[in-house]
Simulated assay, not measured.
Amino acid sequence: MKHKIELSPSLMTMNLDKFKEEIEFLNDNVNSYHIDIMDGHFVPNITLSPWFIEQVRKVSDVPLSAHLMVTDASFWVEKLIDIKCEFICMPAEVINGVAFRLIDEIHDAGLKAGVVLNPETPISAIQSYIDLIDKITIMTVDPGYAGQRFLKNCLNKVSKLRKLREENGYTYELEIDGSTNIKHWKLMSDVNPDIYVIGRSGLFGLTENIESSWGQMVEEYEKSTGYKFNNGIYVKNN
């Protein structure tokens, strides 16, 4: 059984003192980069920015996915459109009243529009525009900090959204973000997401260098799930 997944390292959690080394290795191994943009209001932290995205672009042509944790989505969407960020993923909690306009603006710019569901946010919050979305990110931790408690019940959203996609012909991708590591690979794999966001506990913090960390991550995934990695396709072992 073949199941294609994508891996999207969270650059907020990489080792910035080894930025060039890690990016150069990952460029040949990943499908996208996950970039958290926090404004200090929607969540307490302030991290990364469109400027950071522009710096990544100088050393990588891998598609970039911005995860907005901001109160003024319109402001940040405009900035990300200006720099042509491939995926712009907005918090469902703050775009009520502007969702259709922002989605249209992103699509008109030739980019892809995503929406993020925090743990407490139900699928019903995005029902009115779910058919327009290119990606749905399901948070399995509270947003704003790395290393938080894994919230298993959030995985139910992935199963429900996959069923909705199959029944209605929707085209969004399903992404899991939060505590993606050896403790939870099997649980996550069982609900069949399309994209895994991987951070410090699942990749960057495993060993002293990115190549061995990547090897350990692949080994942990394979042992946990029974899938064998082969050029981006995971094949179920007999």
Rank of each mutant, 00 (worst) to 15 (best):
M1Q: 04
K2S: 12
H3M: 09
L7T: 15
S10P: 10
L16G: 11
L16M: 10
F19P: 07
F25N: 10
F25E: 11
D28H: 13
D39N: 11
D39V: 04
V43S: 11
V43L: 05
P44Y: 13
P50A: 06
F52G: 00
I53C: 09
I53F: 01
V56N: 03
K58W: 15
K58R: 15
D61S: 11
D61L: 01
V62T: 15
S65V: 00
A66S: 10
L68W: 13
I81R: 03
D82G: 01
D82R: 07
K84R: 15
F87Q: 06
C89T: 14
V94L: 04
A99H: 03
I106P: 05
A113P: 02
G114C: 09
V115P: 01
P119S: 04
E120N: 12
T121G: 07
I123A: 00
I123R: 00
I123M: 00
A125S: 15
Q127I: 14
S128L: 03
S128H: 10
V141P: 05
G144P: 13
Y145G: 00
Q148F: 02
R149Y: 01
F150Q: 01
K152E: 15
C154E: 12
L155T: 05
N156G: 13
K157M: 14
K160F: 06
K160M: 13
R165H: 03
E166S: 09
E167P: 00
E167R: 00
Y170G: 06
E175M: 04
N181D: 15
H184G: 00
W185M: 07
N192Q: 15
N192C: 12
R200S: 15
G202H: 12
F204C: 02
W214D: 08
V218Q: 05
K223R: 10
T225H: 08
I233S: 13
I233W: 12
V235K: 02
N237R: 08
N237H: 09
N238T: 03
